[in-house]
Structure formats: structure tokens, C-alpha cells
């Protein structure tokens, strides 16, 4: 009854509250952890030390070349029709403004289509995007490409309504993408409330003038590290079940939800197996990725380094969509693999997480799909995830100790049993 033993140990036993407490110590000590900062590297050193003290095997860092974008001071001052400091956050990779800022009249649009239809109005203007919230995958296109679309039509800067379904006047940052063929212009997110206010002003025909100042700059690339630890397999140590989350975060909030929770339930999966004295037949490997927030560069470079051994990767799992109350697992793989994993998820009745869904996995483990490696992620009640995502609200107060225990139980049972089965999961 190993599955029940694991769940009881995590939820009711001496590991109760351990995941939350470990994450709280980590985030309270280091705060947010943007790639390129010494603080992130200090937090990785701390983790390597903690993982060794936890008795895990093969604890080490693996170097990753990462972008080094620095925010600097920034502001967006509404000058007309009244002076008002718009609540904003520059977007990752954005260029800065000249020291005196960019002062220009603004137009407000609600979609890329509207921008195209009003292209004659764009030259020399700051474009404000007040796109409605649809869903993250849909709405995030505005954060990603507002600058490119604006610059293509001669705009001088873009301000994007934060990609969030709910707001208490909080700006949300995130990465954005330039095109090599289009002039790079400054771009930032503004609070939902401010985007809506500007849209109301524009609808009334009111002239809007904004002064945008951003000191953002991109420094030469630097070196960060993926953080790796293992429970070595007893029979097939070369074969790997990988669990993961990312350790880097944005430079606002504390990165407790995104993705401290995912990183620390992954540590807990290995830690619980070690604490219970279990030894699966194949190796359980935990990776805390670096550089996820700037485009998944840590996981991509890990894949490039290890893909020659893809035939030995049994399952890759990532948690990067919250560690709220879990209800199951989402998996990608062959039909027979899904059947097998569904049987494992059925063991999760004691933590009420028996939902099994065929679906997508996360960015950081997606690279393995082309090699046929099954992938998976955690299903949890993350309906409010984007309330906090990439904002100052991403703190330990979002996390709940019991929910994190339940997530850790799910993560441990699934990864341990797959690692301990007599055979690897079948592939197409």
C-alpha cells in the first residue's frame, strides 16, 4: 500500500506542512528572482545546499545562458486631460525611452483589428491596448506583440492592459517579443482600471497625452543554472522520471505561486520518497528550471544537453499552473501510456484527485514531445491564478499549506509509481 502510505505521510504525517514551510523560508529569504540577478544565483546556491542536506543524490547545478534584462525606474504620466500617474510595469525585453521620456498623444484600441482599421491615426502616437480579457492564451498575444504591431504602423510606444481576469489596480508584467524587422519601441502594461479609464476618455473624444519614461535596458547574456537533484534508481538508474517547476520569477512579487509552488512540490516528491526510505527501480530526477519567465531558456538548454538520452526518459512532468487544491493529472502520450497513467491516478482517491485528462503539458517539458516522451502536469483549482500572475500579489499569502500537501502527494505518488514499475511507459 505504498500509495496510501505516501499520501498519509504527506498530508497527515511528519511531512505535513513541510512543502509550504520550505517555500516560505525560501521566498521570505530571497524574494523575487529575475534571471541575471545575483539574488537568483544566491537562491540557487541555497537550494543546492538544502537539497544536499535533505540527503538527495547527485545534487548539482547545470549552467544555462540567460538574457539579462534590467527594468530600471519607470513611469507613465498622464498629462492631459489631467495629471495622473498611470499604474504600470515595463515588459520584459522592452527597450527604454530617452532620458526625457516620450511624450505623445495616445489613441486607445480594443484589438489588433481596430488598430489596423485606424492605422492612419497611429504615426507618432502612443497606442493603448484595452483588449478585453478572454483567456490567458488568447489575451497574452497583446502583451507579446503590441510593440511590434504599433511600431509597424509608426507608433512610438505601446501600453497594454494587464493580462489579468481581475484587478485591484495592479499591473502585471511579462515577456514580450520584438521582430528583427521592426523598430523596437518601449512597451509596458498598465492596470486594467487605467486602461478602461483611458478607453472611456477616448470614447468621449477627449485628447489624451502621456509621458512615458523607462530606463529599461538589456545587458550582455549571463550564466544561471538549472538546479538538479535525484533519488537514484535501484535497477535502472540510467532511466529517468523527471518532475519539475521553475525557480526563477519576475522582479515583482515573490514568485511564490509562479512557480515556487511547482518547484517545491517537485522537491517534495523526491524528499518524501527519501524520507520514507523508498528506492524506485529507476531514477527520480527533480529539475528546478531557470529562465522560464524569459522564454523557457533553462528547460530548452537542458533538453539540448540531454536529448541524446531521450530514450531513457520515461516521463517528464511540470507544475507551472498553480499548486492550489489539486484534482488530478493531465497527461500526453500514447493511448496505452494514458491507460496506465489513468490507473495510477485512480490511486489518488484519498486526496480526492482522481481526475485524469488527456491534454497538454507545460512549456518546460514540451520539448520532449517530439521524441515521444510522455509528459504531464498537475490539475488544480487555479481559477484565480491570473489574478496574481506576474504581479506584486504573487506572495506566500496566495499559497495554502494543506493544498500544497495535497499537490505534493499527487506529484509524489504519480512520479514514484511510474519510476518503480517493472517497465518504462510504452511509446508510439
Amino acid at each position: 500500500d505504498v500509495a496510501n502510505k505516501i499520501m498519509d505521510f504527506v498530508v497527515n504525517g511528519s511531512a505535513k506542512g513541510q512543502t509550504y514551510n520550505r517555500l516560505a523560508l525560501f521566498t521570505d529569504t530571497f524574494g523575487n528572482r529575475l534571471v541575471g540577478t545575483q539574488n537568483l544565483e544566491n537562491s540557487i546556491d541555497f537550494m543546492l545546499d538544502q537539497l544536499k542536506k535533505d540527503g538527495l543524490d547527485n545534487v548539482h547545478g547545470e549552467n544555462v545562458t540567460v538574457p539579462n534584462w534590467v527594468r530600471g525606474n519607470e513611469s507613465a504620466m498622464l498629462l492631459e486631460p489631467r495629471r495622473y500617474n498611470l499604474i504600470m510595469l515595463g515588459l520584459g525585453s522592452s527597450v527604454g525611452t530617452p532620458p526625457e521620456g516620450i511624450t505623445a498623444e495616445a489613441i486607445v484600441v480594443s484589438s489588433f483589428d481596430e488598430l489596423t482599421n485606424r492605422s492612419s491615426e497611429v504615426p507618432g502616437k502612443i497606442v493603448v491596448f484595452n483588449q478585453p480579457w478572454v483567456s490567458y492564451p488568447v489575451s497574452v498575444a497583446y502583451r507579446d506583440f503590441a510593440a511590434v504591431h504599433t511600431a509597424q504602423l509608426g507608433g512610438v510606444a505601446s501600453l497594454v492592459r494587464s493580462i489579468a481576469g481581475f484587478s485591484i489596480h495592479s499591473p502585471h508584467t511579462g515577456w514580450q517579443d520584438y521582430s528583427d524587422k521592426v523598430k523596437k519601441i518601449p512597451t509596458a502594461c498598465i492596470a486594467v482600471e487605467d486602461a478602461e479609464m483611458l478607453a472611456r476618455m477616448a470614447a468621449r473624444g477627449t485628447k489624451i497625452v502621456i509621458q512615458l519614461k523607462m530606463q529599461a535596458k538589456t545587458l550582455p547574456q549571463s550564466i544561471s543554472r538549472n538546479t538538479v537533484a535525484e533519488v537514484a534508481g535501484s535497477v535502472h538508474p540510467e532511466q529517468v522520471v523527471l518532475v519539475s517547476g521553475h525557480l526563477d520569477s519576475w522582479d515583482v512579487g515573490q514568485g511564490a505561486m509562479d512557480d515556487g509552488g511547482g518547484a517545491f512540490i517537485s522537491w517534495q516528491a523526491l524528499s518524501v520518497v527519501r524520507q520514507l526510505g523508498l528506492r524506485p527501480k529507476r531514477t527520480m530526477r527533480m529539475v528546478m528550471w531557470t529562465g522560464e519567465e524569459v522564454g523557457g531558456v533553462g528547460s530548452l538548454q537542458y533538453y539540448q544537453r540531454h536529448k541524446a538520452n531521450a530514450s531513457n526518459y520515461d516521463l517528464v512532468m511540470e507544475s507551472d499552473m498553480g499548486t492550489f487544491t489539486p484534482y488530478g493529472i493531465e497527461m500526453r502520450g500514447s493511448n496505452d501510456t494514458l491507460e496506465i497513467l489513468k490507473s495510477i491516478v485512480e490511486l489518488l482517491g484519498p486526496v480526492n484527485a482522481t481526475t485524469f485528462r488527456k491534454g497538454e503539458d507545460g512549456l518546460d517539458v514540451s520539448y520532449w514531445e517530439k521524441d515521444g516522451v510522455p509528459g504531464g502536469s498537475l490539475l488544480n483549482h487555479n481559477e484565480h491564478y491570473f489574478w496574481f500572475h506576474h504581479s506584486d500579489g504573487d506572495t506566500m499569502s496566495v499559497q495554502d499549506p494543506h493544498s500544497m500537501d495535497l499537490c505534493a502527494a499527487v506529484w509524489t505518488v504519480v512520479s514514484y509509481i511510474v519510476a518503480d514499475l517493472d517497465n518504462m511507459l510504452p511509446r508510439n
Partner: peptide
């Protein structure tokens, strides 16, 4: 590099193996 392919595995047997973890 060719990947593992196991055409001869017994799915029912694997399910019974998993049930033993309960």
C-alpha cells in the same frame, strides 16, 4: 536515436501491478 518501443507488453498485467501500490 531510436526510442523504446514495447509492442509485446501486457497492459492488463501493468494495471494489476499498479493496483498493488494501493
Amino acid at each position: 536515436k531510436s526510442l523504446l518501443k514495447r509492442p509485446n507488453y501486457d497492459l492488463q498485467k501493468i494495471k494489476e501491478e499498479i493496483a498493488s501500490y494501493k
